[in-house]
């Protein structure tokens, strides 16, 4: 009972927190110069990791799918199947996991430290709203960075797949030519929607958990831990929901209802 009450309170709090951020954004309270600064802090510094992760995710998918296709002598479909599976599901999820660890944990730890060292209270005391001055620039920076990094990461997964296909003896050109035959607009749209949504999730969860951290260094540790677990669980949950919704929509579209 207590656990479910806590869960409802957390998710209710996150929704209210997001709404407050949205309202302040529509009131033109976002300091975009700080957003750019934060994009450099959390985004640009994660680029190397995202590129590396993307290349490996693409390569791993190519290996795994090639193993299955060999049994049916269908290696010619490797490019399309591998890219489609990566773009639609594995790529966004794995890269979002990595970003929640790097960008999310960094942001929640920074905000939690600001809270327990009274920096957020100092802003309140000055008669200012910490959400406007501290949270909004970070939340938008994390949304934008995570989305762009996910897109870069997904492009790298394709590149990783192509590179590895060449290594395992599948012609790279054949691999690339096969991609459009299986990767449809749906796949691309789904991966873009997932990338945006995962970016929003990472931003909201990490800022919320950091902002409401209490209790000294233990509180900072607890906030980062809770941020990581919540991010991972929500990414999996929303991946499932979006995959279901996309599959249903695609079926309706194929039979002509949409």
């Amino acid at each position: 009972m207590e656990a479910s009450r806590k869960l409802v309170r957390t998710f209710g709090g996150m929704i209210l927190f997001s709404l407050e951020c949205l309202v302040l954004t529509f009131q033109n309270k976002t300091k975009w110069n700080q957003v750019v600064e934060q994009i450099f802090q959390v985004g640009v510094r994660s680029l190397g990791m995202t590129i590396t992760a993307g290349l490996f995710v693409g390569a791993i998918m190519a290996i795994q799918i090639d193993l299955q296709l060999k049994d049916f002598g269908a290696e010619a479909f490797l490019g399309g199947l591998s890219t489609s599976a990566t773009l639609r599901n594995v790529g966004p999820v794995l890269i979002a996991f990595l970003l929640s660890g790097k960008v999310g944990a960094y942001t929640s730890a920074e905000l939690a430290t600001m809270g327990v060292t009274e920096q957020l209270n100092a802003i309140r005391l000055l008669g200012a709203n910490p959400i406007e001055y501290i949270i909004l620039p970070r939340i938008w920076a994390v949304v934008i960075s995570s989305f762009l990094l996910l897109i870069v990461g997904l492009m790298m997964t394709i590149f990783g797949g192509v590179m590895f296909a060449e290594i395992i003896g599948v012609n790279a050109l054949n691999y690339i030519y096969n991609i459009p035959s299986i990767v449809t607009g749906w796949s691309i749209a789904l991966s873009v929607v997932k990338s945006f949504l995962f970016g929003v999730l990472i931003a909201v969860v990490s800022c919320y958990k950091g902002y409401y951290a209490r209790g000294g260094s233990v509180g900072v540790g607890a906030a980062v831990q809770s941020c990581s677990v919540t991010n991972l669980m929500l990414i999996i949950l929303f991946d499932f929901l979006l995959s279901m919704a996309s599959s249903t929509l695609q079926d309706l579209f194929n039979v002509g209802y949409l």
Binding site: V116, T117, E118, Q119, N121, A122, L125, G127
Partner: peptide
């Protein structure tokens, strides 16, 4: 009203 009030914190509260 609260702009007339200020405070220093035990843990400094400085923007690090």
């Amino acid at each position: 009203i609260l702009r007339r009030v200020s405070m220093t914190f035990q843990r400094s509260g400085l923007f690090d």
